[in-house]
Write a protein that binds this DNA or RNA. Structure first.
Length: 576
RNA sequence: CGGGGUGUGGCGCAGUUGGCUAGCGCACGUGGUUUGGGACCACGAGGUCGCCGGUUCAAAUCCGGCCGCCCCGACCA
């Protein structure tokens, strides 16, 4: 392709609205055009890269036995009502009305549509297993699109769904997809880590995310350098060390702690370490009920774990008024002596019954000491909470905490979620009636899995992970072109002939080459070459032509080599 | 949705105590001189100053409302 004919305008200055590397570089390299918040047009350079990514995805999916389909973006809302997600996904759904006033959804994902298809075509265990996939535009009305292509309202996703006649089959499909995903990301030149993930309110059991490690990532990850455990912070567990247990149980005692509404103040005043205090964190769920979380003073609450435990759709910090309404006092709250109605009590398993704790007394300026939760947690009628409280893990793992598997300290990092696989089980097949007849002639729900890859996200995260101060450094497999051919002093007829001839030769040989035949100065061309970041740069210039050589420079190399003109093609197409 | 910022040619910005044909750099066109790391000179094209309403002899500038975009948070399969 001749650059003089190509839709590609680079920018010297960085647009003010872009603040992540991928967004800045894609705008500067003339790859994308923003049309609205989170909505982009892909210009030729970006589109070529996307097509390469899609091709890799297709090859690996096909190799894993999946079959490609193409599903509609427009879905009748009834399908979403049937699965229960019309309400469940709420505001994220883009909705449109047709001329008759009938409501339709712009597909944010395709479980409903695919399940609808499969329930109409699969009858018997003989039709299974089946893995179907598509590459499609998805629409999500995100509360906040951001970071260029990393979180858009319209984006390209590869979504695959597996259908099996039992959980062993699902395991096999899941493993096949996991392997295909590893291959895809490796081929795309991405460094990823696979983490255990939260599968959300409607999810099944196993769920893993493929994360591109990058500082701009939205997700917080924890991993263990010694045993390999890795998880999204939403899901991560850790080893909770118990502070010294006590054999005796002194009676509970109220102590004055004026102005000590934080754990730090209370711990300092009473001379106890934070891990011997119990912190109360209060939320209100979508029904208006209060979710009362008790956790050891040195730990933070993981809201996702709380949400999952109570199957809450929505959780927000409770207001002071809501806290007082149940008889608790903000800053001095504990479950001791509060109302029971409308309160769900969550006790983190860091709170061990044999430890002597300090906790709030539900009275301004007072705390209790010598609190043993199994003995002292009682409501206002003196009825024990023990038995009706949820006692499990509600804590947020942090770097430095012990790995749940081997106990050594966990490390933290950030990642961009480029793939997510999980075992759905029979959630959709049951709600939507997708069944098959087993060998005994009995009707069974099909066991499903679903597997997503953010195709546009791969593009953005590849740039996020592979760039330097001058520009993009494309992983070769997804570079829009292989070679950036620079012609210098093309106004000299002899040089232009040489450059044109080299371009034609490479082009005929099937080497993807972008030929900078513009009338620009050397500096402009070299800087654009670095910005666009194709793997190889070739330079034809008067001094090279005189010597019968072409300058050959790999984007990642510090210096260029001079290669004999006749050897260029073989240098670019190594047979061995 | 809460907090913050911002909106002036394609991009980056100035101008905002009300005052003349709204400026600067980059990019763009024409001509000339240059030519290995973002050249120079000359001439030139390009703007409903986000939108609507108000105040005024006069509004990019003051007032009111609305909208877009960006960031933090909430949110988010």
């Amino acid at each position: 392709m001749r650059l003089s004919r190509y839709l590609l305008k680079t920018l010297r200055e960085t647009p003010a609205d872009a603040d992540t590397a991928n967004h800045q570089l894609m705008l500067r390299a003339g790859m994308v055009h923003q049309v609205a918040a989170g909505v982009y047009g892909y210009l030729p350079l970006a589109w070529r890269a996307l097509q390469k990514i899609e091709r890799i995805v297709r090859e690996e999916m096909d190799a894993a036995g999946a079959q490609e389909v193409r599903l509609p973006a427009l879905h009748p809302i009834e399908l979403w009502q049937e699965s229960g997600r019309a309400a469940g996904m709420g505001d994220i759904l883009f909705k449109v009305k047709d001329r008759r006033g009938h409501e339709l959804v712009l597909g944010p994902t395709h479980e409903e549509v695919i399940t609808d298809i499969v329930r109409h075509s699969v009858r018997s265990y003989r039709d299974l297993p089946l893995i179907l996939y598509q590459i499609q535009t998805k629409f999500r009305d995100e509360p906040r699109p951001r970071s260029g292509l990393l979180r858009g309202r319209e984006f390209t996703m590869k979504d695959a769904y597996s259908f099996d006649a039992g959980s062993e089959g699902l395991d096999r499909s899941y493993q096949a997809m996991a392997q295909a995903y590893r291959n895809i990301f490796d081929r795309c030149g991405l460094q990823t880590i696979v983490v255990e993930a939260d599968s959300g309110a409607i999810g099944g059991k196993d769920s893993q995310e493929f994360m591109v490690t990058a500082a701009a990532g939205e997700d917080e990850l924890l991993h263990c350098p010694s045993c390999g455990y890795a998880a999204n912070v939403e899901k991560a567990a850790f080893k909770k060390l118990t502070p010294g247990t006590t054999a005796e149980r002194p009676p509970r005692e109220k102590v004055a702690t004026p102005g000590c509404a934080t754990i730090r103040d209370v711990a300092a005043l009473l001379g106890v370490p934070p891990e011997r205090t119990i912190k109360a964190v209060l939320y209100t769920d979508e029904t208006g009920g209060l979710v009362f979380v008790c956790i050891r003073g040195d730990l933070e609450v993981n809201e996702v774990k709380v949400k999952n435990a109570f199957k809450a759709k929505d959780l927000r910090p409770a207001t002071d008024a809501e806290i007082r309404a149940v008889g608790a006092v903000p800053g001095y709250a504990s479950p001791i002596g509060i109302r029971r109605e409308g309160v769900k009590l969550a006790v983190d398993d860091s709170i061990v019954s044999s430890v002597d704790y300090v906790t709030g007394a539900n009275q301004e300026g007072y705390h209790y000491r010598h609190v043993f939760w199994d003995r002292d947690f009682m409501d206002k009628d003196g009825k024990p909470w023990l038995g009706s409280a949820y006692y499990q893990d509600f804590a947020k793992a942090q770097p430095g905490h012990g790995c749940p598997k081997c106990g050594l300290p966990l490390e933290g990092s950030r990642g961009i979620e480029v793939g997510h696989i999980f075992k759905l089980g029979t959630v959709y097949s049951e709600s939507m009636g997708a069944r098959y007849l087993d060998t005994a002639g009995q009707e069974q729900p099909i066991v499903m899995g679903c597997y997503g890859i953010g195709v546009t996200r791969i593009l953005a995260s590849a740039i996020e992970q592979h760039h330097d101060e001058k520009g993009i450094v494309w992983p070769p497999a997804i570079a829009p072109f292989r070679v950036y051919l620079v012609g210098l002093n093309l106004e000299q007829e002899a040089i232009r002939r040489e450059a044109d001839a080299l371009y034609d030769e490479l082009d005929k040989a099937g080497v993807e080459v972008l030929y900078d035949d513009r009338e620009e100065s050397a500096g402009v061309k070299f800087n654009d070459a670095d910005l666009i970041g194709l793997p190889v740069r070739l330079t034809v210039s008067p001094r090279n032509v005189k010597q019968g050589v072409v300058e050959y420079k790999v984007r990642t190399a510090a210096k260029a080599d001079l290669v004999e003109r006749q050897r260029i093609l073989e240098k670019l197409t190594p047979s061995a």
